[in-house]
């Protein structure tokens, strides 16, 4: 019995620990992201040099804003990107900083519809 009780306690403790760990991850501010800080980091890490100052007019690389990409998706992508983009490994940038950048990219407002821009509707 004692033994069973011990194992039940162990299981309870392990489950509680696991649950508390999950809660901690979900509430980790590094993955929620701070858009204001992300804007600064976007400049600091020279993301702008290929993607443009707001992530959408770089010319060298595709527009990446306004985006819907989550922090997790962004982290997953930049750690081992496809094509000519260089890798942003964990040695270069932290998950927390990338989460802030992802928040910034999600915060960039949409561009106007080209049909509403007179200068783009002339010959």
């Amino acid at each position: 019995m004692k033994g069973n009780k011990f194992y039940r306690m162990l299981l309870f403790t392990a489950t509680a620990l696991a649950l508390s760990s999950s809660v901690a991850l979900a509430q980790d501010s590094s993955l929620v992201g701070n858009a204001e800080n992300g804007k600064k980091l976007f400049a600091t890490y020279f993301c702008w040099s290929c993607h443009g100052s707001n992530g959408r007019a770089g010319g060298t690389a595709p527009a990446i804003a306004p985006g819907t990409r989550s922090a997790e998706d962004l982290i997953k992508y930049v750690r081992k990107p496809r094509g000519p983009m260089p890798p942003y490994t964990s040695k270069s940038i932290s998950d927390r900083d990338l989460a802030d950048i992802a928040a910034f990219l999600r915060s960039v407002p949409k561009d106007p519809d080209p049909k509403t821009i007179p200068l783009l509707n002339q010959q």
Partner: peptide, 12 residues
Amino acid sequence: TRQAAIGWNDSP
């Protein structure tokens, strides 16, 4: 034309 609208109001 669509591409030209990207970042239309951005600064720089």
